[in-house]
């Protein structure tokens, strides 16, 4: 696993809102939408179950629909939770989520367009889970394939954004797996539900041995949001974005040996940027060179060695 530099002081100072209104299903005209996303195995479902249970306990209608990304560990998992006086559709339309809880940073970024552009609240664990090879960063020389968006980039796109190093904080508190409870604590600051109800439900959902630590991190989550809303320094703040090494500036040049190509279509279909096509002779061709990131996937998977990528060094280009 690649190291990610972290600083332990808050660097993300979200825009301070003057009056923080909590989302209240009693007063809201429409159902309240909370989208929870993450990677398989992180506990997305647990978070959404807690929320749904509270809503039920408090007498609201609630619909929760979850999708496990092909049921694979490490795959995408997301859950839509909608609650209010009357809820009809189980899924949240794009641009209508009031709160987005991301248990994994890149997943959070990926779902950001589901948030309400004007009032959406983004709460994300800065934990990074690097996906397997096929999804990695394809820029030559990139150390890991991962989103380069930093918390400050995010802040510009949503009304309110919180990047919490929840996993780190939970680990310090004694249980890494309690990170999702910490995020529940953060979530609780945005909703009008009483704290007792949260703690009651969490206590029933988590393994008995971990109740204490879970309740402790729930508080931490609340405190973290409240303090950072006031602009006060917080523990386990956002991270310094990964500085890409020099080599990333290397560009590549792709060449195809047409006599060797058998037109199997692998490169065309496997290119993540879709820049290759088969021409009328059924030979691969680089149709959109400007889109090519030099990721090498086509070169690697061409069974006929017809594609080769050569780095063009910066000096040579300049």
């Amino acid at each position: 696993m690649t190291k990610i530099n972290k600083v332990m002081k808050a660097t993300t100072q979200p825009a301070v809102r003057t009056a923080v209104e909590k989302l209240n299903p009693d007063t809201a005209k429409e159902p309240i939408n909370v989208l929870i996303v993450g990677v398989g195995g992180q506990g997305v479902i647990m978070v959404s179950k807690v929320l749904a249970q509270i809503c039920q306990n408090l007498g609201y209608q609630v619909k929760q629909s979850e999708v496990h990304g092909m049921a694979k560990r490490g795959g995408v998992v997301f859950s839509h939770v909608r609650f209010g006086q009357n809820v009809w559709s189980p899924t949240i339309p794009m641009g209508k989520a009031d709160v987005l809880i991301a248990l994994e940073w890149a997943e959070g970024l990926r779902w950001m367009n589901y948030l309400r552009p004007d009032t959406g609240i983004f709460i994300a664990d800065t934990k990074r889970i690097v996906p397997p090879f096929a999804c990695r960063s394809r820029i030559l020389g990139a150390d890991i394939g991962y989103s380069k968006n930093t918390p400050s980039d995010v802040r510009e796109k949503v009304a309110e954004a919180f990047a919490i190093d929840a996993t780190e904080m939970a680990t310090k508190a004694g249980n890494e797996r309690a990170a999702n409870t910490l995020l529940l604590g953060a979530l609780s600051t945005t909703l009008s539900f009483p704290d007792d109800e949260w703690k009651n439900v969490i206590g029933k959902m988590v393994p008995p041995k971990t109740i204490e630590v879970n309740l402790a991190v729930f508080d931490k989550g609340q405190v973290w949001i409240n303090r950072s809303r006031k602009g006060e320094p917080v523990e386990g703040g956002a991270f310094v974005p990964l500085v890409q090494p020099e080599i990333n500036s290397v560009r590549t040049e792709l060449s195809i040996t047409p006599e060797w190509c058998k037109g199997c279509d692998i490169c065309v279909k496997m290119c993540p940027e879709r820049c290759l096509v088969l021409n009328k002779d059924q030979v691969a061709e680089l149709a959109e060179p400007e889109k090519c990131t030099g990721c090498h996937i086509c070169e690697w998977l061409c069974p006929d060695f017809a594609i080769s990528l050569k780095p063009i060094h910066q000096e040579a280009v300049a």
Binding site: E259, W260, C261, K262, G263, C264, D265, I266, W300, L301, C302, P303, D304, F305, A306, S308
Partner: peptide, 21 residues
């Protein structure tokens, strides 16, 4: 290509054959 006998190419395997990879 430093490791191939280039004059024998293209190789005899079918289009898409995993052996090339």
């Amino acid at each position: 290509r430093d490791y191939l006998r280039l004059d024998l190419f293209p190789h005899f395997m079918c289009p898409g054959c995993g052996h090339g990879i």
